[in-house]
Design a protein around this nucleic acid. Structure first.
Lengths: 219, 219
DNA sequence: GTCTATAGCAAGATAGAC
DNA sequence: GTCTATCTTGCTATAGAC
């Protein structure tokens, strides 16, 4: 590993440790630099802002989630079980960072911020997440209105963002309320998806698909 | 009006003006204090942080929305039309503050912040908003599963939070994409609400009601 | 290209005098 | 209640070592 890579990694590792120990606000750039044994200027040489330091963290959670979720999908073909596994897996991965994550997702809510899940900068991470949801759908035995099938992964990703939002606000021990949200909403979503095939349900289903398609356009 | 009330009001009024003129970030406490003709220390005597200054603004938008929405409900009994009117009305009220509102709602996404719509501090504002949605439901001629009827206002409020979140990220001219979201999702919601009465749909409807009820508990 | 040291600015927040 | 002075911290700038 190149020297620069080592330094970069050292800084981000130190930052993540201090963030989780003391929270984002109470961790100063001076402290990160001192603890990592580099100068403040050097830290800024690698990361143009304190917020930027968090982007590495963001990517790391997403990466871990992908890695941990894929194997779970190997052995399971039920739609509900697959969706449940992927969502709970995220909660497991993110758990240690809940305290810090709070501060983190506050930044992410800023549409101006490169950390926003809707921003161009994070479109790679977003696409990966939507891709994971596509695997959830495609690898399952669920029967769907084919029109809905195309859009469902994006819808599920939106749902996951909702879970994340809930989790950020979740103060229950072990964030068990977030787990409950997943446990109870997954069967619901599954039932609704199944209903999508009924003729009577078609117009609603079409409207949903159209709406998502329309909103996905950036005009 | 007591002297202290006058000073307090002077500070918040000045702050709101500067916020809307120049944005939240570019408005410094020093500038607010100078413009209001008081010292920085005095501003902090009344408002413990810059963020606190925004709470008054938050309440003001909610108040204006309530005031503007109520008359619209007088003359209309269709559920869809009522819901649409209330949601579009919010977009109208909030429009002038879109630029500033962005920064504002970033702060509001912080669960630690008293500005969070889920925090205890803003529970009065939240209750008022849910109350407005209850009027939308109760004053309409919509036929509903009675179980759902109780929970629907809370659900609609959640939906409105979703609209707000979308609006914050909306960069289209006149935030017309947000308007489109309302125009297209209202009929959808209406159709789903109507479906709730079908026997086949009952289990789903019950699950939704149960879930909301469970999540509303703060255990 | 990588890094240190240091000085300094801007702005949010606070302390303590009056 | 109000002020002035001061502190803190994110961030920048510069000058130079290797």
């Amino acid at each position: 590993m190149a020297k620069s890579e080592e330094t970069r990694s050292l800084i981000v590792t130190t930052a993540m440790r201090l963030f989780t120990e003391n929270g984002y606000d109470r961790t100063t750039m001076r402290a990160i630099a001192a603890e990592a044994g580099v100068s403040v200027g050097n830290a800024y040489y690698y990361f143009s802002s304190k917020e930027q330091l968090v982007q590495g963290f963001y990517d790391e959670i997403a990466r871990q989630h992908q890695a941990a979720a894929r194997p779970l999908l190997e052995s399971e073909t039920g739609f509900a079980a697959r969706l449940r596994a992927v969502l709970l897996c995220w909660l497991d991965i993110a758990e240690p960072y809940h305290r810090f994550g709070t501060q983190f997702f506050v930044n992410a809510a800023d549409p101006e911020s490169p950390l926003s899940p809707f921003s161009d900068d994070s479109s790679a991470a977003r696409k990966a997440s939507i891709g994971l949801m596509r695997e959830v759908v495609n690898g399952s035995d669920v029967k769907l209105d084919p029109e809905l099938r195309d859009q469902l992964p994006e819808l599920l990703w939106l749902g996951q963002m909702g879970v994340v939002l809930f989790w950020v606000h979740d103060r229950s021990p072990g964030t068990k309320r977030s787990r409950m949200l997943v446990e109870r909403s997954v069967p619901l979503i599954t039932r609704l998806a199944a209903l999508s095939r009924l003729r009577m349900f078609r117009p609603v289903s079409r409207e949903v698909v159209d709406l998502i398609r329309e909103l996905a356009k950036r005009d």
